[in-house]
Design a protein around this nucleic acid. Structure first.
Lengths: 122, 122
DNA sequence: TTCATAATTCGACAACTATCAAACTATCGG
DNA sequence: CCGATAGTTTGATAGTTGTCGAATTATGAA
């Protein structure tokens, strides 16, 4: 990730409602959520919600797909991990003592398989 | 970290100049840098620099100490790690498959010691 | 086609942010 | 004390952001 990508991403997260919806979607994983369900939890008007989703999407942090009448928003995990790496880049002189975050969501089927066999295939 | 701390922290980082100076300080580690050296690299007027440093400090991301006529700004690594953890909290349903970032700067003496004995004490 | 649901876009306005010149505060050396 | 250096604070101004009512687009069901 570059600076010109990181600033919009951080700006998108730097707002109470957007941060909360992003975290909701981080926890939802690959299945994602439609705006209606997000609105239900955050109690904000549809135009405001839509405005904030557009900000997050435009910043590259979210992706959308359509499912019938509903849109489904999901986190772009590559962008999220890229942002983390950018912030910790060459941390403390780059002696390698610092762990960099990696968030790797599993599909529902993979998660179920993981329960039976703990060691996830690379 | 809580939401009411994360939003100001993200807002502080969501600005080109502030993000650049924060990253500079992340790389500088515990030794930190005075505003004069930051200004030298970023080419911004002293009042603007001071304004941005105050924003980062007020958000809890920086600390200051005085050394003679100079002030020395350093990253607050606890706040930085707290922010990372907040963003990845309960990621992907919380199945523990995702690494959480930890940035642990070494003092100059410790870093030198590390070179001789690779395994850092817990 | 007509109706209802799901969500976005438009428009207007209040609140907030970034910038920098000028004035101020703190520390050191002589 | 005085002058110089290192930074901060103040104040004014241009630009940006968040909010929501009203209008609009897209999909599915009858």
């Amino acid at each position: 990730m570059k600076s010109y990508e990181a600033v919009p991403a951080l700006a998108a997260l730097a707002q109470e409602h957007r941060l909360e919806m992003f975290r909701l979607l981080v926890q939802a994983g690959l299945e994602g959520l439609p705006p209606s369900q997000i609105a239900e939890r955050l109690k904000i008007a549809p135009p405001t919600l839509s405005f904030h989703l557009a900000q997050l999407k435009h910043a590259g942090l979210l992706q959308v797909r359509r499912d019938g009448r509903s849109l489904i928003y999901t986190v772009n995990y590559d962008a999220m991990n890229g942002l983390m790496e950018f912030l910790t880049d060459n941390c403390c002189g780059g002696d390698g003592s610092c762990r960099v975050p990696v968030c790797e969501p599993q599909s529902a089927t993979l998660v179920r398989r993981r329960a039976a066999r703990p060691a996830r295939p690379s």
